[in-house]
């Protein structure tokens, strides 16, 4: 088994009715629960605030988020276990984030020691 990180990105939140919000959340919970039951979740991870600070350059210049393109903002991450990159990618395809227009999941293998 190898480890992978899923990085979730999506643009501005669409406006949703309470019922739609609950249904969308339910889809996320179902997806993560299914992955957990199949032993793929190493750490469910965390959602991230959409704003923060950016430290850059030798001068350690501090600027405020949000960042240049809202769709580039990482909204959360999950640490998963899968046989290989192909399986990790297939599992990511079930993520409800793709119901949002600009939702993406970046699948990155964790670099192994030795």
């Amino acid at each position: 088994m190898s480890e992978f990180v899923y990085l979730y990105r999506s643009g501005a939140r669409p406006s949703r009715s309470p019922e739609q919000a609950q249904q969308e959340m339910q889809r996320w919970m179902t997806w993560l629960k299914d992955l957990t039951e199949k032993g793929h979740i190493k750490d469910p991870g965390h959602p991230l605030e959409r704003s923060g600070k950016l430290v850059t350059g030798k001068a350690r210049t501090v600027t405020d988020g949000p960042f240049a393109e809202t769709k580039d903002v990482v909204g959360g991450y999950t640490l998963v276990q899968a046989a290989d990159l192909a399986q990790a990618t297939t599992l990511a395809a079930g993520c409800p984030i793709f119901e949002l227009a600009d939702g993406t999941v970046e699948v990155r293998p964790v670099l192994k020691m030795g």
Binding site: R13, S15, R16, P18, A21, Q22, E24, M25, W28, M29, W31, L32, P44, G45, H46, P47, G75, G76, T78
Partner: peptide
């Protein structure tokens, strides 16, 4: 209220109900 729902949507799937 809308904001509270957004928070719940973001947090609950990761951290549990």
């Amino acid at each position: 209220v809308q904001d509270a729902f957004c928070r719940a949507m973001e947090v609950w799937p990761f951290r549990g109900l």
